[in-house]
Amino acid sequence: MSMRSGFAMRGVTHSFADGGTVLQVLDDLSLEVGAGELVAVMGPSGSGKSTFLSIGGALLAPTGGEVLIDGESFAGKSPLELADLRLNKIGFVFQSANLIPYLYVREQLMLVAKLAGMEKGQARRRASALLEQLGLSHRANAYPSKLSGGERQRVAIARAWMNDPAVLFADEPTASLDASRGRDVVGMIAERTKAERKSAVMVTHDDRVLSFCDRVLYMKDGRLVPI
């Protein structure tokens, strides 16, 4: 059990310069997510949740402040180093599953393992185990277009876990699912976060999945506040 795993933001600010006016989206935002912790982030549309997640996921550089994964800061990293960081340390589940249309379900997982240089036999075993756990074994050789919405979302979760990331980010992972499917998907995220002592941050509008989360935070005036 690694206690060093964790995610932190310190005094992060972000503003968009949008046609002359400057839009302050995040304002001195700080957050710590420990190992084995699943944090839910809620808030009205346009409050900056996706922006916050993009910064946490090393997709967007904040205007100010610091982001750390496993105690390692993003600051001063080149685009190449950030890509490697996303590949190895960060798992991302997007609002819509965002799978690669021409890869079979199993290959979606094999791709990220291959990019990270995982040994092939090990990658195959890990992919099979993940698909098994997410109830996708029978769909391993299907194209994404042949899957249901819930199945696709589960493949995306499996892909996010594939490289054993330190932190998982999920942006409204249940938006395209019905209530029971949504609960299943979040249940799986919670279960793995606990079992493997990872950190997870999930943006959601869905009250029904909050029971799986350790903490629920609200995005208000560019900061995250407890309810």
Binding site: A83, L87, N88, N98, V112, L115, A116
Partner: peptide, 16 residues
């Protein structure tokens, strides 16, 4: 473009 964006987001290098 969308696919390339996803691939980049999950950590694929541009050179690849």
């Amino acid at each position: 473009a969308g696919q390339f964006g996803i691939l980049k987001a999950i950590g694929t290098r541009t050179s690849y």
